[in-house]
Amino acid sequence: MPMKTKKNPARTHKSDVLDDFFSVKDKKEYNKTEKNMLLAIRIESAMKKCGYNKLQFAQAMEVQPSMVTRWLSGTHNFTIETLYDIENLLSICVINPIEPTLIEVIDHLHVTVSTTKLPAGNPAGNLNYNISNLTHLQTHKPQLLKVIPN
């Protein structure tokens, strides 16, 4: 019986040149690049959803197709006016001038609710008891709104 030859993945090549290249030194620039690319994806997805190909979208926006290519490349520096026009045409929101309400995240508490019979008495009270035993939450007074038993 012929022996099965072991197969391996391509080796990972490391070097000082590559390590230095890939290190992110300017976080601000990186964040900007990331946002630009994610915006480009958002526009492209919305285009497809609305049934536009690149040529049709260019015609609707009254620009050259090469400009749409540039918009979708993730490298373009949009004007606010262009973004408003894109928002209108594609019915999406990419500019949000309203400050989002800040929600203070105190902690993440994972609560598993089972379908077994809840203990007699006040289930909500029992749950409150368990939460209050988490000392790092006590100063923030978490509120349990309602427990709905089956």
């Binding site: 290249f21 890939f22 992110v24 030194k25 300017d26 620039e29 990186y30 690049t33 990331e34 690319m37 994610l38 480009a40 994806i41 492209e44 979708l72 490349s73 993730g74």
Partner: peptide
């Protein structure tokens, strides 16, 4: 220019994938 290419590669590798539009 190299820095820009590096940032784009990072985003492609970790967030977006190598989408044709890029």
């Amino acid at each position: 220019e190299l820095n820009d290419l590096k940032n784009r590669m990072h985003v492609i590798a970790s967030k977006t994938g190598a989408r044709e539009q890029f």
